[in-house]
Amino acid sequence: MKRFLLFLPLLVAVVLGVVLFAGIGKDPTKLESALIGKTVPEFTLADLHNPGATLDRSLFRGEVSLLNVWGTWCPSCRDEHDDLMWLAEEKGVPIFGLNYKDKREDALVWLDRLGDPYRATIYDPKGTLGFDLGVYGAPETFVIDADGVVRYRHVGVINPKVWEETLLPVIREARGNS
């Protein structure tokens, strides 16, 4: 018993070390979405390109897709735009856009100048769908499976590395079991 007590400080130090080590390298600003495993919230919002038409969540049915939250006011969105073009054109990934808290004219100019990687873009000037999705900073990208269920949320820019290491495995899994 006495012997055991002598080792107690060592034991405590090791346990604490393991716990703290697990936290190293994690980015605390990236939160897991609360919507994972849930269907995309209901919405009825205008199409960016076509003010008369509305879009709703049936958009995401039938195929695993990405939902990319962006705005012309967001510098990182400019950063990832070329990689979104690459994903859409080279990899054939279906990407939907959510134009978040933005002006229609600005957004249209942006897509005209830089190219449009999106199958369709939801126009959300007040950020209502963004709020329901728990968006706290653009760019954010959701992986949505063929049943319209959120599988993953990536906070921050998309680049080939994020695609290979993070998104592709999630997409493969989502394609596999739905």
Partner: peptide, 8 residues
């Protein structure tokens, strides 16, 4: 709010 943004 927790349903949207998580327990955080």
């Amino acid at each position: 709010l927790v349903a949207r943004f998580g327990e955080f």
